[in-house]
Amino acid sequence: MLRRLVLASLVTSAAGAGALGPLPPLPLLSSPSDALTVTISKSGHRSADGTFRLECGDKAGGDHPAATGACTRLAEHAEAGADPFAPVAKDRICSLQHGGDAVARITGEWRGRTVDARFSRADGCEIERWDNLTPVLPRLSHVRG
């Protein structure tokens, strides 16, 4: 909503001042309410397990150990029009590899919508989904076959 008001104000100002040319695109900023709780367990890495708060607004915040990188990664997903929290499609064929027992849950609000997503490393698709969200989720390289 704020973005629309700013854009409308700029258009009105530009129209009154004469032909200034096209307006530059507005950056894809997170809203001030982008706040997520990331809970990781069974990662096999004591420093990775825990519950962390991630806030992405004008600047990265919270106690997430990689807040700046995590907010940057989420912004990349937004710019690509991707939903980083979407589950694996039920009809997708996934490799039968086990990437460890790690599980994660991300809750909160992102881009104006409620998030409640679960992640694991139970098969190739879930491993890919987890890795695609690094550093929001910790990089876990161990794979057990």
Rank of each mutant, 00 (worst) to 15 (best):
R3T: 10
L5E: 03
V6G: 04
V6S: 12
A8E: 03
A8T: 01
V11I: 05
V11S: 01
T12N: 10
T12P: 02
A15H: 09
G16R: 15
G16Y: 10
A17Y: 13
A17E: 13
A19E: 13
L20V: 14
G21A: 12
P22W: 13
P22D: 14
L23M: 11
P25A: 04
L26I: 07
L26G: 08
S31C: 03
S31A: 09
S33R: 14
S33W: 08
D34T: 09
A35H: 11
L36N: 02
V38T: 11
V38W: 08
S41A: 14
K42F: 04
S43L: 07
S43T: 02
G44S: 05
H45R: 15
H45G: 00
R46Q: 11
R46D: 11
S47A: 15
T51S: 15
T51P: 10
F52G: 05
R53T: 14
L54F: 11
G57E: 02
H64M: 09
P65V: 05
P65F: 06
T68R: 15
G69C: 01
A70D: 00
T72S: 11
E76L: 13
E76Y: 02
H77R: 13
H77A: 15
A78P: 08
E79R: 14
E79T: 08
A82T: 14
P84N: 12
P84M: 14
F85P: 13
F85K: 07
P87T: 09
V88E: 01
A89N: 08
K90Y: 08
K90G: 11
K90H: 07
K90D: 15
I93M: 09
L96C: 13
Q97T: 12
G100F: 03
D101F: 01
A102K: 00
V103Y: 00
A104P: 01
A104W: 00
R105C: 00
E109A: 12
W110P: 06
W110T: 06
R111S: 06
G112M: 08
R113F: 14
A117R: 02
A117V: 00
F119I: 02
S120K: 02
S120R: 05
R121V: 03
D123K: 04
G124I: 02
E126F: 01
E126Y: 03
I127F: 05
I127T: 03
E128T: 04
W130T: 08
D131Q: 06
L133K: 02
T134V: 15
P135E: 04
P135Y: 04
L137D: 04
P138T: 05
L140P: 01
S141V: 09
H142M: 10
R144N: 12
R144F: 15
G145L: 15
G145I: 14
